[in-house]
Design a protein around this nucleic acid. Structure first.
Length: 278
DNA sequence: CGACTGTCGCTAACTATTAG
DNA sequence: CTAATAGTTAGCGACAGTCG
């Protein structure tokens, strides 16, 4: 795995937004069923007992105790009881998006997986439910963390190792753009020149860049420039104007102002408070 | 003298919309 | 998916001035 791929993955995951709509533990009633609907949110069902039918697209599943079911947003699905022995399950409705895209659209994942450590997942769902009913700010933050942990468990168990970049032709190009920006960060990069280099119309380029990366290209470039400047401030004794020039800022004054607006510190303050990494 | 701030004006970049 | 247009916003450079 190259540094650039790791960078891309991290930047990409920086844009992950998780939102929990509802979570609960339920013993399904006899009439528990709905057919051929398309939700705009994802669902997890963690089956504890009982039996039932889940249909996703045209695939039918009869999940068992100890299995976790993913019912992704935007896909036609149905569910129903099949006997008096109805499901007892933990479940949650949630969205998890990178840019404007559902995170599960980036992976090839099965809809049903076996869980090895049933107790661990059960505890996570219990915590999720408790946190969802807690109005404290800290609980809201923890709720997102627990939801992210459940998603990570699912992805780990599903043996997902990487984004399916090839699934999105444009994303493959944006991946190249990000690598290009990383290796040319000290040069005079503009949206127009980038769009031209990668054969996009500038308007279209800005739009899809933001779609996948969560922020417009120029803001991403500036963010990366400031990250590089922070690194140089910590690890070198270069003068501020040299660092400004080395990170693509034509104007040291503008560099100083941008740095402060993004980090809250002026470059020299940042250097003074940072532990020296020599 | 170097680092930084405040302000001004120009323009590149962005967004929304529409159309092919 | 690509392109054009128009209105808005933010980036940027320049300069004067302050601070230590």
């Amino acid at each position: 795995m190259s540094r650039q791929n790791i960078l891309f993955k991290r930047d990409f995951l920086d844009n992950l937004r998780v939102n929990i709509i509802f979570s609960a533990y339920t013993h399904c009633w006899q009439g528990w069923r709905e057919f051929d609907y398309i939700p705009d949110f994802n669902k997890f069902y963690f089956i504890c007992e009982g039996e039932g039918l889940i249909k996703i697209c045209d695939e039918e599943f009869y999940p068992q105790k100890g299995q976790l079911v993913l019912m992704p947003a935007g896909i036609r699905q149905s569910y129903s009881t099949i006997s008096k022995d109805t499901f007892k399950k933990y479940w949650c409705h949630f969205t998890a998006k990178i840019g404007d895209i559902n995170v599960f659209d980036f992976f090839d994942v099965p809809y049903v997986i076996d869980i090895d450590n049933v107790n661990e997942l059960e505890e996570l769902f219990k915590e999720l439910i408790a946190l969802h009913n807690d109005q404290k700010l800290s609980a809201m933050l923890r709720e997102k963390a627990v939801m992210t942990e459940i998603i990570a468990c699912f992805i780990e168990k599903a043996n997902v190792e990487d984004f399916k970049v090839s699934r999105f032709a444009s994303l493959e190009k944006i991946d190249s753009v990000v690598k290009y920006i990383d290796s040319h960060i000290s040069e005079n990069l503009s949206v127009e020149s980038l769009a031209e280099h990668f054969h996009f119309h500038p308007n279209y380029f800005t739009r899809i860049f933001k779609k996948y990366m969560g922020l417009p290209p120029i803001q991403y470039i500036n963010k990366m420039r400031i990250e590089r400047a922070k690194y140089l401030l910590r690890t070198t004794d270069l003068q501020i104007n040299e660092i400004a020039a080395g990170t693509g800022f034509l104007d040291v004054y503008y560099f100083s102002r941008s740095f402060k607006s993004l980090t809250g510190y002026s470059p020299s303050d940042f250097r003074n408070i940072s532990p020296n990494s020599f």
